[in-house]
Nucleic acid binder design. Structure first.
Lengths: 145, 145
DNA sequence: TATTGTTATACTCTATAACTATA
DNA sequence: TATAGTTATAGAGTATAACAATA
């Protein structure tokens, strides 16, 4: 019982750290997005669009419903960041960043590169130690490098 | 420029791992809560109530508005998990877990102790390595142990 | 006057279901 | 018939503002 309680405490501590860090990372990203005049969900979509992608794929990538992607696409289009391009299969529409969209994407990534928590608070060696642990936690199949 | 891009990629990779892991941890917790018939937000409140606490403090701890705590308290009370106790300062109401509330809290913590990702996927040594890195990331003032 | 909790209300994000146009 | 995207609508979760009781 005391064993179990100790395990819970440890798990709880680590989980809280993880969740807290993730929340801070998200808050940082939100702030970066806001500094560019974008709500987070639009910024995430822009980041996801490294290549033109069918709306359905984006839904998969962002883990949300197709109908929500429609709404995101509308908002991105209004802001001139994205255009809808009909695919070879004419049912499909690809979302493609405009020049302005590309510029915004670059601004986001540059700012993240400057400010990201994992870069600010850890040095190279710590990151090298951390990465495989996080990959294990995330359930990434370990390449036998 | 390529330097910056590489930094962004690394930050992005690590941040995505962190956010993904946190999301999985949250999903696990949601599932545990659901197995006890509780929505997550109520389960989080129960976990937070290790001691009877003023509603205002709980609002701080859960990072939400006082008015929302009122709504949580109502729901917890309906389920018989919590009671409102008037404090010394008679404006204040403490939320205190009932016996059933305590039992639910224990059930949650026992289940977390069994299932938590950080316990399932990492061994003792890995956790020992991970903890200080996460604490550094979280900005915890490092005790010079 | 300032603070605690409450109430009523409104907003944001996201999903569901029914629809259209293609395939 | 099945799939991609769209539309209209609804729900969950949470906040804001005005309020009552107490300090």
């Amino acid at each position: 019982m005391s064993r179990k309680a100790a395990r819970f405490e440890q798990a709880h501590h680590l989980s809280q750290l993880l969740v807290g860090i993730a929340e801070q990372a998200k808050a940082d990203f939100t702030e970066i997005a806001a500094s560019l005049g974008l709500p987070v969900h639009l910024a995430r979509a822009v980041v996801a669009l490294s290549e033109p992608a069918p709306m359905r794929d984006l839904a998969g990538h962002l883990a949300c419903d197709r109908s929500y992607i429609t709404s995101l696409a509308d908002q991105l289009e209004e802001r001139g960041l994205v255009r809808r391009v009909t695919g070879d299969d004419r049912r499909v529409k690809l979302l493609q960043l405009t020049d302005e969209g590309l510029a915004v994407r670059k601004a986001i990534s540059d700012t993240v590169a400057e400010r990201a928590l994992v870069l600010r608070r850890l040095d190279d060696q710590q990151r090298a130690t951390l990465t495989p642990l996080l990959e294990a936690l995330a359930g990434v199949e370990t390449a036998e490098t």
